[in-house]
Nucleic acid binder design. Structure first.
Length: 557
RNA sequence: GCGCCCGUAGCUCAGCUGGAUAGAGCAUUUGCCUUCUAAGCAAAGGGUCGCACGUUCGAAUCGUGCCGGGCGCGCCA
């Protein structure tokens, strides 16, 4: 079932096809796939259907012709031990059935690699970075950030597992206007607390947490009067606010199981000198021009809808400019590729920042933006309305406290990032069969109670030379385990961990079905030993998958 | 008006680069615990895959055009 088997078959069939039509040079490529239906074998090729036009014959007739040649080719190759049966089925598929021995190889492979089963050197140590969350330190993290955190973290784990040198980074946007507003908000709330009448601007941060911060601030400084508050510069409020909230963010993320390799600060990277150097570089490449008193970047050269302003007519830089410096900094640090995880409100920004990467000499796909759709929160069956500006939203902290880390991470990962997510707090909280979180973990935990039972009976798990497992539920479970590596590759292809979540649910389903149909520990010691080996192999695969998703692997539930 | 994402069972969603009779969970109905955890298993009902053309031996999947929903279109960040 592994990739090399598919490749071997592909080559073999390709050779057979070529022998049938030596003069044809535009033969279709051979594709091998795993049929959805068990009655269609373990592997299948549609080559006869694809080449119907070239051979000017019915697909079934072509398949029959190829079948004889494939049979003899297999008999004289190493595949003989692996392929049990080959047959043609309407409308012209050629289906391959694996031998039991080939299926058992999966189990031996799992035991040989253990917690490294599924790992590979596919990534060839390519150095890449995923930047995610990167919320401005102006408030606690929301559910949107929580989803991005779960996705970024799981994706990093998967990329590392398949051989990439992957790093996770948080970009702290501490240079912009919003920090000034944050400082102002704290200051005004402090004055309010002291009984002053203040006009609190609508654009300032309205959340209750600002009042808490103002109290903390005054306690720290031992401020008692409005004059004390007015006596310190705005910078003090800004620094306090940003640092305070950054600490909150770090703590919340840590409690969510997400720890970054690097926290980059805009204020340290996008310095005046580095911005000027960037502008000079872009100018030398002929990618900027002045118009209406502003400095523009020709992003249209790279497919953007319109050019973008780098420096406003008042002399200040737009958000884009330091962000380009930051991305240049990423590539200068040796990251071959970079991924930015952003919310859907940023999709209009993609062309711009990719244009910048190309202007800096990178290829189009060296910078990829992963847009993670939002999550709607449902409580008591109704959607909770959220507004960041008004400070009304469910925070990551509330999600952690209310449903727990495992359930929250699982829910955030169980849908494609392209899919808008419905997060039902009541469902996520439930410790019952309705909650999909526990389905996978329960399979893992069940193995431990089997092991306890086996220990009583003095049965040791077998880890090689399997031969007695013949039940369909056993074979299905083993074959499903063999699909683990390809699901990791699929997660990489789509840059989204969700295929792994779906896979683990399928694997758990195979396990539960086996569990209900057959007893592991019974009066046949040889069979019991093999079944014990089987369920422990399943436990390894489940554990590896859960670990990659950042979920716990309970031994008891 | 333009751009991105979504539209598949009552609900929430899978369906990978086009393949064989469109799947799962939840919900509904019905079975299975004196034996390794019932947070489990089995069975039943439930679908013009938003609509229409097109490409193809073959379309939920690809293309075009509509319809519907979400988000975004600043010298904001």
């Amino acid at each position: 079932m592994d990739a090399s088997l598919k490749e071997q078959l592909k080559v073999l069939i390709g050779d057979v096809l070529k022998a049938q039509a030596p003069d044809q040079d535009d033969l279709p490529a051979v594709e091998i796939e795993k049929p959805a239906d068990k009655d269609h074998g373990d592997l299948s090729t549609n080559i006869a259907l694809k080449s119907a036009r070239i051979f000017r014959d019915k697909p079934v007739a072509i398949a029959e012709k190829l079948l004889a040649a494939i049979h003899s080719a297999i008999d004289s190759s190493a595949l003989k031990a692996v392929i049990d049966k080959v047959e043609v089925k309407a409308p012209g598929f050629i289906n391959f059935y694996l031998s039991d021995g080939a299926v058992f190889d999966v189990l031996e492979d799992i035991y040989a690699k253990a917690d490294q089963y599924g790992a590979s050197d596919f990534g060839k140590k390519e150095k890449l970075q995923i930047e995610f969350v990167s919320a401005n330190p102006t408030g606690p993290l929301s559910v949107a950030h929580a989803r991005q955190a779960a996705v970024g973290d799981a994706l990093i784990n998967i990329l590392k597992f398949i051989g990439f040198d992957a790093h996770k980074e948080y970009y702290v946007n501490d240079g912009g206007n919003q920090i000034r507003i944050l400082g102002d908000s704290i200051k005004l709330r402090a004055l309010e607390i002291l009984g002053e009448t203040v006009e609190f601007p609508e654009d300032n941060y309205q959340g209750e947490y600002i009042k808490d911060m103002a109290k903390h601030f005054m306690d720290d400084k031992n401020f008692k009067s409005a004059d004390d508050v007015k006596g310190v510069s705005d910078d003090v409020y800004m620094d306090f606010g940003a640092q305070y909230l950054l600490d909150v963010i770090k703590t919340d993320l840590k409690d969510f199981g997400v720890e970054f390799d690097c926290w980059s600060h805009e204020s340290k990277i996008a310095t005046q000198a580095s911005i000027e150097a960037l502008l000079k570089e872009l100018d030398q490449k002929g990618l900027t021009y002045e118009s209406e008193g502003a400095l523009w970047f020709k992003t249209t050269d790279f497919g953007d809808d319109k050019d973008r302003v780098l420096r406003k007519s008042d002399g200040a830089y737009t958000y884009l400019t330091p962000d380009i410096v930051y991305h240049k900094h990423k590539f200068d640090r040796g990251f071959n590729r970079a991924f930015d995880v952003l919310g859907p409100d940023h999709h209009g920004y993609i062309k711009r920042i990719k244009a910048a990467a190309q202007a800096l000499g990178k290829e189009v796909d060296d910078l990829q933006v992963l847009i993670v759709q939002l999550a709607s929160i449902f409580r008591d069956g109704v959607e909770v309305s959220m507004s960041t500006r008004r400070g009304q939203f469910i925070s990551l902290r509330e999600v952690i406290d209310e449903v727990g880390v495992d359930a929250a991470r699982f829910f955030f990962l169980m849908r494609s990032i392209k899919q808008h997510l419905e997060f039902d707090l009541d469902l996520a909280k439930k410790q019952s069969s309705e909650n999909p979180v526990y389905y996978v973990q329960y399979a893992h935990a069940r193995v431990f109670s089997i092991n306890a039972k086996a220990k009583e009976a003095g049965i040791e798990p077998k880890a090689e030379k399997f031969s007695l497992l013949t039940e369909p539920e056993e074979m299905d479970l083993i074959k499903k385990m063999g699909e683990f590596p390809s699901n990791l590759m699929r997660a990489y292809d789509v840059l989204d961990p969700y295929p792994l979540v779906i896979y683990l649910q399928e694997l758990a389903a195979c396990f539960h079905k086996f569990y209900d149909c057959h007893r592991v520990v019974d009066d046949n010691p040889e069979l019991s030993a093999e079944r014990l080996g089987l369920v422990n192999a399943a436990r390894i695969v489940l554990a590896n998958g859960l670990k990659l998703l950042g979920l716990s692997r309970p031994e008891k539930m």
